[in-house]
Design a protein around this nucleic acid. Structure first.
Length: 425
RNA sequence: GGAGAGAUGGCAGAGUGGCCGAUUGUGCAACAUUGGAAAUGUUGUGUACCGCAAGGUACCGGGGGUUCGAAUCCCCCUCUCUCCGCCA
């Protein structure tokens, strides 16, 4: 979330930003809530001060004075409790309102509401020229016996699937390929929990357990299945104070991602494009709290994402995502969309986001700079290295041959163990 | 799963109802001393919130309770360690 002081001092900018982001929220009560909160704190502090003074006098007081002091102490206890309760109520309202306000936006981000308002920064790679009618990944995987949708539906329902045969090798190869790259780039690699506490989800900007939640939650617990390792990686430094000299922290994680995809019915539901579970390698960064540092990190993450797809030989385009299409935590966001011949269009395969201090404030992840007083909230960034299902669609569809076989990208062959995936007999 | 021990400031480690936001050691910083260093000495050294400031309030794993007053007493939870059992 945004800093309360900042919101109050920049009311008009924040309002305009909400407008650009397509977030409907009336932020005008915030000033009065802020003032009420301050009054309760001031009153509470004064009462507690008197309380301390009163109880402090008791051991030294004479027998005659004591009863009056004790009586006053009792009174004060009640008053303090009353004020604290009111303060808590106001703070809940304040928190609820503050949580609805999205992050501020990079001045260069395109303003717009729709996907189409995002700007294509560049296109890289050549789309394949087929001298036959290209199939989509569902047909290809049926022909090559790579994905069992039927079994997935039977066992876990629509949106679940079994990878089979070379698809399994491809998943493992993609993960290995991404991890090898990230180790070379100086990332600390991890495997993360696939579940996280709700407060961590909220800190990152997800809303578990709401009506429109995208999150699977575990009953009778405060745990939810993660929608991305961004959650578990960002949560790693919750409540920590990092020495500024150690920044930036570059951490990557392998996790499974679970999404209910509520409200996505009828929207590209064919195949493994939109599924309830997939495997992903994610990058995460904690940087010093200044825009120069986090912008630089953001560009690095984008560069790595592009190099990963260049290394796979897949054509893609880079989008500078418009204000209406980024999440609440985002300050700036780029997506990579790979060419997917089966759909005849580009499909999102990665995204990378600079969240500035928006997530860090709620997670209370701070840094200490030598010579600077106090602590500051760090900046956080995240980006996809490989989302296995989406990458696999692009590989199968772009590398298909006239005879129905699929060429394995050269960079994956050492793990897949073959150059060509052909139909089984 | 069973039994026990514990959680205090960067770290170590006192503190069992008021004089404790917290003894002390250590680490760190500044200064003094020195040709320079070691050693030594002095001073300082947490975070958050409210306030223009002076200052104030909160925080001893987390939450609740008892009390005029809680690091200290009571209840619940979490985590760590040791032992036993079980297990991929």
């Amino acid at each position: 979330m945004l800093d309360l002081q900042y919101i109050c001092d920049h009311l008009d900018e924040v309002k305009a930003n909400c407008q650009n982001r397509g977030v409907q929220v009336d932020i005008s009560p915030i000033l009065s809530l802020r003032d009420q909160r301050r009054d309760f704190i001031t009153q509470g502090d004064a009462l507690r001060k008197e309380q301390k003074g009163t109880s402090g006098k008791i051991p030294k007081a004479s027998a005659e004075e004591k009863p009056a002091l004790i009586a006053r102490g009792k009174e004060l206890r009640g008053e303090v409790a009353k004020i604290e309760e009111q303060q808590k109520l106001i703070e809940q309202q304040l928190y609820a309102l503050q949580s609805q306000i999205p992050n501020m936006t990079h001045p260069d981000s395109p303003v717009g509401r729709l996907e189409e308002d995002s700007v294509t920064v560049r296109k890289v790679g050549e789309k394949p020229n087929f001298d036959f009618e290209p199939k989509d990944h569902v047909e290809i995987s049926q022909h090559l016996d790579l994905i069992d949708f039927e079994a997935g539906r039977k066992v876990a329902g629509h949106g679940f699937y079994y990878l089979k045969n070379e698809a399994v090798l491809l998943e493992l190869a993609l993960v290995q390929y991404a991890i090898e790259k990230l180790v070379a780039e100086g990332f600390t690699v991890t495997t993360t929990p696939d579940l996280a506490r709700d407060e961590v989800l909220e800190g990152i900007g997800y809303i578990p357990r709401g009506d429109e939640t995208q999150i699977y939650s575990i009953e009778n617990s405060d745990l939810s299945l993660v929608a991305t390792a961004e959650i578990t990686l960002g949560g790693m430094m919750k409540d920590e104070v990092i020495d500024a000299e150690k920044l930036p922290l570059k951490i990557a994680g392998i996790s499974h991602c679970f999404r209910t995809e509520a409200g996505a019915h009828g929207k590209a539901t064919r195949g493994i494009y939109r599924v309830h579970q997939f495997t992903k390698v994610e990058m995460f960064g904690f940087t010093a709290p200044d825009l120069a540092a986090s912008d630089e990190f953001h560009q690095m993450v984008l560069r790595i994402e592009e190099e990963i797809f260049q290394g796979l030989g897949l054509p893609y385009r880079v989008l500078d995502i418009c204000t209406g299409d980024m999440g609440g935590s985002s300050y700036r966001k780029y997506d990579l969309e790979a060419w997917m011949p089966g759909r005849g269009s580009y499909g999102e395969v990665t995204s990378c986001t600079n969240c500035t201090d928006y997530q860090a404030r709620r997670l209370s992840t701070r840094c200490r700079t030598a010579g600077k007083k106090g602590t500051q909230f760090v900046h956080t960034l995240n980006g996809t290295a490989i989302a296995v299902t989406r990458a696999m669609i692009a590989i199968l569809e772009n590398n298909q041959q006239a005879d129905g076989s699929v060429v394995v990208p050269e960079s994956l062959r050492k793990w897949v163990g073959k150059e060509l995936i052909v139909a089984k007999k």
